[in-house]
Design a binder for these strands. Structure first.
Length: 575
DNA sequence: GCCGTTTTCGGCCCGACTGTTTTCAGTCG
């Protein structure tokens, strides 16, 4: 098993956390944290970096971090981390993931209460010992309990990009089994859900299912093999991954893949449609009375039932079967996007230069790329001052004049301040081609205040797009309180677009609301929120969310040609 | 640990908010 970027990043982060708890030099801690962020954004894989010596040229990666990468690639483990694990109780490192607890508090908990695990911490939060510590109080104890509950949930669900990576790796492994012609990730992954519970895999086999399952049970790394019947089993690997495997012969693939993909609500509607047409949809086959109906693919099943084939993303039991009786929307695809917008560069917290971004986007087939670094109020991510902005504009003009790659648009991701205004003067704002306005602080406002804050910023004619509207971070932070209906109504009326932020930790606007927004007449933009070259691919997750929200290319701002995109932004300023 | 047309040593890291306080430490983005 080769080591991937995510693993390297995780190990570097772990090293940083251990050092932090030990009370080591904070700048050293920071160096490892920055290193973790940097490697995620690098192209290629760790093994390659070593062979080609790529890391020597990367700023922020020096001898220490290179040693960790080398350890991981050559030995699969880091001696530096192994040593640190001897020195710091593992429970304390876990506690750092609890929001509201930092190093100082965790150390105090450890020293004063001798607590080394999360269950012990929970007990102390319940019985009042935690609140009694100096600097702690009832609210802190309450927050700890809430955050621990969320962490628990986070271990039973995974973010879609992690689940999809895992599913595709497993599929590649299963396809090497004798007699297996295809392994297809199904379930939540195939429907493109933002959070994935269980992995489901359909194997197409030209051998009896029992034989294939027997081989799977004997695979190296299989820890548990249970819940199985003649065609299904739940397999747990030593690494902790678990997957439900369903084996089918080719003639039944259509029905089996449908059933394995779900959702329950979609299958319920489908079963009723089948019954009305005189068919029975069982777990593994389609029947007309007692006659077996072959279904080599899903399209066959839908067609037999008089329906248009329903793309997996739409199968949520939200009216798609009714729509499929006549006509389903032509859902947007990645190639419909003409522009890649919401990209950070090395001017703020991104890792690519303007010129690199233009080149990479050009190579990926985009006609334009919207650079949107953070505004100056976001100091922690190197937000741009007015001088920085003017320097970046010159850089963009030079890049466009050189004409290599996608056309670069001048944008900014401006903080929406607590009072609903942007932290820039109007003349400066006028210099941008477009403006994304986002909330980055004061999440705790009540619903009325937050709604007013956002409605107010929409009155500013420079605002083109509202970024990550609800502020959620999947599995770690709830959306803030907001009256989205009022925001949608105003967006439709004022011609402000609303973003689907494609960062797999955000995927905000939620796809369920995307459809509501569309019906309210809102234009949607798909923002990559990319901080590196690798992050540009995030946009695929955004497209998946757009599809789940029933969007066509016509609904999406950056599926339009550059002139139309710019006109959309300009129209508001001229009104 | 990383970096360097000021230094191979000595800097690097800002501001707002929260919950705890009675003037501020700790956390977070």
């Amino acid at each position: 098993m080769s080591v991937d970027r995510a693993t390297v990043a995780r190990v570097l982060d772990q090293i940083a956390s251990h050092l932090e708890l030990k009370g080591d030099n904070p700048f050293k801690v920071r160096a490892f944290r920055m290193g973790a962020r940097t490697v995620v954004g690098l192209a290629g894989e760790p093994g390659q970096w070593l062979e080609e010596g790529t890391l020597d040229q990367i700023s922020g990666i020096g001898a220490g971090i290179q040693a960790v990468v080398r350890d991981l690639v050559l030995a699969g483990r880091s001696t530096a981390l192994d040593e640190l694990r001897e020195q710091v109780p593992p429970g304390l490192v876990e506690m750092l993931r609890i929001s509201g607890l930092g190093v100082a508090k965790v150390r105090q908990i450890h020293e004063r209460l001798q607590i080394e695990s999360i269950p012990d911490l929970e007990a102390a939060a319940r019985d009042g010992r935690l609140a009694a510590l100096p600097g702690f109080g009832p609210k802190t104890a309450d927050n700890v309990l809430k955050s621990v509950a969320r962490l628990r949930q986070a271990t039973s669900f995974r973010l879609m990009h992690h689940a999809a990576d895992e599913a595709h790796q497993l599929a590649a492994g299963f396809e090497r089994l004798v007699g297996v012609t295809r392994a297809i990730p199904a379930g939540d992954v195939r429907r493109g859900l933002e959070l994935v519970g269980d992995l489901v895999m359909v194997l197409v086999a030209e051998r009896p299912a029992e034989d294939v399952l027997r081989d799977i049970a004997k695979l190296p790394g299989v820890d548990e093999f249970g819940g199985h019947d003649e065609r299904r089993a739940t397999v747990r690997f030593a690494g902790g991954e678990s997957v439900q495997v369903i084996v089918t012969p080719p003639p039944n693939l259509g029905v089996v893949l449908l059933q394995a993909t779900g959702s329950a609500a979609h299958l319920q509607d489908l079963a009723e449609t089948a019954a009305a047409a005189g068919y029975t949809l069982s777990g593994a086959a389609l029947w007309k009375g007692s006659e077996f109906v072959p279904t080599p693919d899903e399209t066959t099943v839908y067609r037999i039932l008089g329906l248009e084939p329903v793309p997996p993303e739409l199968r949520e039991g939200r009216g798609e079967i009714d729509a499929a009786r006549t006509r389903l929307p032509a859902l947007i695809v990645r190639d419909d996007l003409q522009g890649l917008i919401h990209c950070h560069t090395s001017y703020s917290d991104g890792s690519s230069s303007v010129r690199d971004l233009a080149r990479i986007c050009g190579e990926a087939g985009y006609r334009y790329v919207g650079v949107t670094d953070h505004s100056g109020t976001a100091a922690y991510v190197g937000g741009l001052t007015e001088d920085d902005i003017r320097a970046q504009w010159r850089d963009i003009d030079d890049t466009n004049a050189a004409g290599a790659g996608a056309r670069v648009l001048k944008g900014i991701e401006a903080d929406i301040l607590a009072d609903g205004w942007l932290g820039f003067s109007d003349p400066l704002l006028d210099g941008f081609d477009f403006v994304i306005a986002s909330v980055h602080n004061r999440f705790e406002m009540n619903r009325d205040q937050m709604t007013e804050r956002i409605l107010r910023v929409m009155d500013h004619p420079a605002v083109t797009i509202l970024g990550h509207l609800t502020g959620r971070l999947l599995l770690s932070r709830d959306p803030y309180q907001l009256d989205t209906d009022r925001v949608f109504a105003k967006a439709a009326q004022t011609g402000v677009a609303i973003e689907i932020n494609a960062d797999p930790q955000r995927l905000d606007l939620d796809w369920r609301l995307v459809r509501v927004a569309k019906e309210a007449g809102v234009t949607i933009s798909i923002g990559a929120d990319a901080h590196s070259a690798a992050g540009l691919d995030n946009v695929n997750y955004g497209v998946t969310m757009a599809r789940k929200g029933w969007l066509t290319a016509a609904d999406v701002l950056n599926a339009r040609p550059v002139e139309d995109f710019l006109a959309f932004a300009r129209r508001r300023r001229q009104a």
